[in-house]
Simulated assay, not measured.
Amino acid sequence: MNIENKLATEVIGASIKVHKYLGPGLLESAYKECLYYELKKSGLNVKKEEKLPLLYEDVELDCGYRLDILVDNKLIVEVKAVAEINDIHLAQMLTYLKLSECKLGLLINFNVLLLKSGIKRLINNIE
């Protein structure tokens, strides 16, 4: 989990940089693109809109799940620009963690005055 924590620290730093530059009030897609750019620029292995299949009876099914940002195949970043994070957003991230092999996810809501109040860290405890 040390690698995931290190990655999360880098992602949070890049998120703060993006938020300071853009501020709140833009579309989710704008924050996602800027964060993706910052993470790529820093040299991390980053994928955007990565497909996340559902494994059912040893068959991979494409159910339309897409990860906003996947960092080093270890950390899921879900970008939001909403009035507030609610249970459906948490359920979404927990589903992504359950379906992937990732142990850590960051749910980042950019539509806040102070970004640290918009970050939720979720851990996949299922082994």
Rank of each mutant, 00 (worst) to 15 (best):
9 T>L: 10
20 K>F: 10
79 V>H: 01
62 D>I: 01
40 K>M: 12
1 M>S: 12
36 Y>P: 02
29 S>V: 06
122 L>W: 07
9 T>D: 06
78 E>P: 07
38 E>W: 05
105 G>M: 06
88 I>D: 15
12 I>N: 09
109 N>Y: 03
21 Y>K: 14
30 A>I: 08
101 E>F: 15
25 G>L: 00
35 L>F: 02
85 I>G: 12
116 K>W: 05
16 I>R: 06
56 Y>R: 13
58 D>V: 00
13 G>A: 09
66 R>Q: 01
57 E>T: 11
117 S>R: 11
122 L>T: 06
32 K>F: 10
94 L>S: 06
91 A>W: 00
17 K>R: 09
6 K>H: 14
126 I>R: 08
16 I>Y: 11
102 C>N: 08
82 V>E: 10
26 L>V: 06
110 F>T: 00
74 K>Q: 13
8 A>W: 09
57 E>I: 11
113 L>W: 13
99 L>V: 01
67 L>E: 07
101 E>Y: 15
39 L>C: 06
86 N>K: 11
9 T>P: 02
43 G>N: 06
33 E>F: 04
73 N>K: 13
41 K>Q: 01
10 E>W: 06
63 C>H: 10
79 V>P: 00
65 Y>F: 15
52 L>F: 04
89 H>F: 08
44 L>I: 03
90 L>Q: 09
78 E>W: 07
22 L>H: 09
80 K>V: 05
17 K>L: 06
19 H>E: 07
63 C>Q: 07
125 N>L: 09
113 L>R: 15
78 E>K: 04
36 Y>E: 12
72 D>E: 13
106 L>P: 00
127 E>G: 12
17 K>M: 02
61 L>M: 11
68 D>Q: 05
6 K>Q: 15
84 E>M: 02
34 C>M: 14
16 I>M: 11
10 E>F: 09
99 L>A: 01
94 L>E: 07
29 S>C: 02
65 Y>I: 04
45 N>G: 09
25 G>C: 03
118 G>K: 01
93 M>R: 05
42 S>N: 04
26 L>H: 05
31 Y>W: 03
75 L>S: 03
49 E>C: 08
126 I>F: 11
59 V>H: 12
64 G>K: 12
22 L>W: 04
49 E>K: 11
64 G>R: 11
119 I>W: 10
75 L>A: 04
39 L>V: 07
98 K>A: 15
44 L>S: 03
56 Y>G: 13
42 S>I: 04
103 K>F: 05
100 S>R: 02
21 Y>F: 13
94 L>F: 02
14 A>E: 07
66 R>E: 03
88 I>N: 15
112 V>Q: 07
83 A>N: 15
100 S>M: 01
46 V>P: 01
124 N>C: 11
58 D>E: 14
127 E>Q: 13
24 P>W: 09
2 N>S: 14
88 I>Y: 15
122 L>K: 10
111 N>F: 06
67 L>R: 09
36 Y>M: 11
24 P>I: 06
105 G>C: 04
65 Y>H: 12
94 L>I: 05
20 K>R: 14
124 N>E: 07
82 V>D: 04
32 K>A: 14
60 E>Y: 12
